[in-house]
Design a protein around this nucleic acid. Structure first.
Length: 451
RNA sequence: GGCGACGUGGCGGAGUGGCUACGCAGCGGCCUGCAAAGCCGUGUACCCGAGUUCGAAUCUCGGCGUCGCCUCCA
């Protein structure tokens, strides 16, 4: 098995992937809080971890990908209230949108998509243990995590407790022993319509404990990869790590991966900046191929420019691959392919360097295009590479050939050309174009491709 | 202010102490009746300053700039 290395936020270095159980890899990727439609920025982790799973499977691992859906959260209450609908109803509706929108990416579903509301028992259990171990305390129906009880706290995000801004504010401040402490459980407040009974009162879970509990339930403590956007490193992942460390006496995950933010106009895409683009809108305008190609074009850890220009670039790359695919035959690839295929997978093995892998794809395309016209080039290797990136469909024939009428026009054009009636030939080409097709003159006669 | 990341050719975006990233766009050529697609060629790219080195865009230090996070708020 090829050695795979991934960047671990905790150590700040590349770490070899060494599964807890040989041959098996668990990935937990923090998903969205469903209080509105997701924007294209939210799609990046979905794509990154879906593709990482494909790569690991290609390398022979049995992979379980868990991407949670946070459906109990302050933001949901805040969004539901003005709409006059129960918060759970809003969450359900937005979760359905989320599934439909991400389905549009054509990358399948994660193996598990747990809803926080369905794992409250596990959260209550973990909180109970934390209280028993003096890592947490209940106050007036709230439960807080005692940050200073965890010597490892701050390690993931490389922050010193002493450096942390002793921020004011927060209505829980007066009940906390220490301003650093964060909520594991929150007593139900007026206007909050979802709550569960617990030994310390009626209420609902804090955000961080949700992920600790769901990840543990589905993957067990000490699984391989925990991922999410780099804006979640602190406090969310720091707190998640602390909860499991103190409650279970073991690290939740071996490697903490963080993907970079999408940039729109040089800034993080966020509602507060007013620069959001909804995922379904982008998919409709540019197509899922372009979106996936764009995401693959930048390293997952870095920021990535997303705008009409970069999407158009990505669409052009898609066309180039698809164009090359038209000339390929089924079956094994030529000898020259092996080295490029190796480059491709080696790039992914080294911190999932998809842009470098993509460079190998385009080198492959150029080699194939350069092959003598009479030499059939088998597309098997290219298909294998693109499949890992979720782009194998580029090699498949577009649905449906040209309509009869267009074929007739093309035939008429052949006749016109052989009669050297180029005016008529050009007129027919325009007519074909108006019908949505491009006619090309090739050695064998002509070729019709969708415009 | 603190912590972290980053500043690469027109644009996007990799990478390495000395050797072509890749793609898009542009320019020249081949092919074509003309195109399209493809192929070939082409751009004195690495924020600024100093240092280390035979040699740095790649290492070190300083500066400037950008981005993310800074605790119930992705």
């Amino acid at each position: 098995m090829r050695q795979i290395r991934l960047h671990d936020t905790h150590t700040g270095a590349l770490a070899p992937l060494e599964p807890r159980d040989p041959g098996r890899v668990g990935i937990y990727a923090c998903g969205p809080t469903v209080y509105n439609r997701i924007h294209i920025g939210n799609a990046r982790p979905f794509v990154v971890y879906s593709l990482l799973k494909r790569f690991l499977e290609h390398e022979g691992y049995a992979v379980t990908l868990v991407a949670n859906i946070t459906d109990v959260n302050d933001k949901i209450y805040d969004a539901a209230r003005p709409l006059g609908v129960p918060s759970q109803e809003l969450a359900d509706r937005m979760a359905a949108h989320y599934r439909a929108d991400t389905d549009g990416l054509g990358l399948g579903r994660p193996d598990h998509e747990p809803l926080a509301s369905e794992y409250v028992d596990a959260m209550v259990d973990l909180i109970g243990t934390l209280i028993e171990r003096d890592a947490a305390y209940a106050v007036e129906g709230d439960v807080y995590f005692r940050v200073r009880s965890d010597p490892g706290y701050g390690g993931l995000s490389h922050r010193l407790i002493e450096d942390m801004d002793q921020g004011e504010g927060g209505d829980g401040l007066s009940r906390k022993e220490d301003p650093l402490d964060f909520a594991l459980w929150k007593a139900q407040k007026p206007g909050e319509d979802t709550a569960w009974e617990t030994p310390w009162g009626r209420g609902r879970p804090g955000w961080h404990i949700e992920c600790s509990a769901m990840a543990e339930q589905l993957l067990g403590v000490g699984f391989e990869i925990h991922g999410g956007g780099n804006d979640l490193t602190f406090p969310h992942h720091e707190n998640e790590a602390a909860q499991t460390r103190c409650g279970r006496g073991a690290e939740l995950a071996r490697i903490w991966m963080h993907n970079g933010m999408l940039q729109l106009g040089g800034e993080k895409m966020a509602k507060s900046v007013g620069n959001i683009a909804l995922l379904p809108d982008v998919l409709r305008e540019h197509g899922r191929d372009a979106v996936v190609m764009l995401f693959c074009g930048g390293h997952y850890r870095g920021p990535l420019q997303l705008d009409d220009g970069t999407l158009a670039d990505a669409a052009a790359r898609v066309r180039r691959v698809r164009e090359a695919g038209r000339r390929l035959t089924d079956g094994a690839s030529p000898a020259w392919s092996a080295a490029l295929k190796e480059e491709f997978f080696a790039a992914l093995a080294e911190d999932f360097n998809s842009p470098r892998a993509l460079a190998a794809v385009f080198d492959w395309v150029r080699a194939a295009n350069s092959s003598p016209a009479d030499a059939a080039v088998g597309g098997a290797d290219l298909h294998e590479m693109l499949d890992v990136l979720g782009l194998a469909n580029l090699l498949e024939d577009e649905a449906g050939g040209p309509p009869e009428a267009v074929v007739a026009l093309a035939e008429a054009r052949v006749a016109a050309r052989s009669a050297k009636d180029f005016a008529e030939s050009d007129r027919l080409r325009e007519e074909i174009a108006a019908a949505g097709w491009t006619v090309r003159d090739v050695a064998a006669g002509y070729e019709l491709v969708p415009a």
